[in-house]
């Protein structure tokens, strides 16, 4: 997968552009959407607590993989939404899910040797979407492009804000 910084920058770019046409979408809501982009990266909790350790403790088969899938994103978006005030639940859920989807889509576009991304639409379908094989996750170009785009969007956004 792409690194966490790249994942966070993608919804920042898209939501900042969208904020031009959506009145309530200000900085604090954009940040909430960015948080969703981190959900698929939670699969890296594996580094802290190995799957085998959990399996040994619980005595049942176990994998963190659903965190990097649509099912995991929807469930965690729900959990995150509930942490906010009741009147914001719908909005937070939508934004966080959006952020998570951008990460899943970006990761689904990286190189797979057999030309098919992982089944990230789990548990809804086992279909593995074809990947355009745009990049490998260790390629710094991905981060450089994301940083450049985010910087450009931030500067334009600031100009527009100052003009209002």
């Amino acid at each position: 997968m792409a690194d966490l910084l790249t994942h966070l920058l993608v919804p920042y770019i898209l939501l900042t552009i969208a904020s031009g046409g959506v009145g309530w979408l200000d900085q604090r809501w954009i940040v909430v959407g960015m948080g969703g982009a981190a959900i698929p990266d939670l699969v890296k909790v594996e580094i802290v607590v190995h799957e085998e350790t959990v399996e040994a403790l619980l005595g049942i088969p176990f994998t963190y993989k659903p965190l990097s899938t649509l099912g995991g994103v929807l469930l965690l978006s729900g959990i995150i939404a509930v942490a906010f005030e009741r009147r914001h639940w719908r909005r937070v859920f939508g934004l966080v899910t959006f952020g998570g989807l951008t990460s899943l889509l970006l990761d689904g576009m990286r190189v797979y040797a057999d030309g098919r991304a992982s089944a990230w639409l789990y548990p809804f379908t086992s279909w593995r979407p074809p990947t355009p094989s745009l990049y490998v996750s260790s390629d710094p170009t991905v981060l450089v492009v994301a940083l450049f785009a985010a910087g450009t969007v931030a500067v334009i956004d600031r100009r527009i804000q100052a003009g209002n």
């Binding site: 049942i60 963190y64 993989k65 659903p66 469930l75 959990i79």
Partner: peptide
């Protein structure tokens, strides 16, 4: 939150 976490836990087992 507990219900959602339990469902997520269910997916962790189901997926494997």
């Amino acid at each position: 939150v507990l219900a959602l976490f339990l469902t997520l836990g269910g997916l962790f087992v189901h997926a494997e």
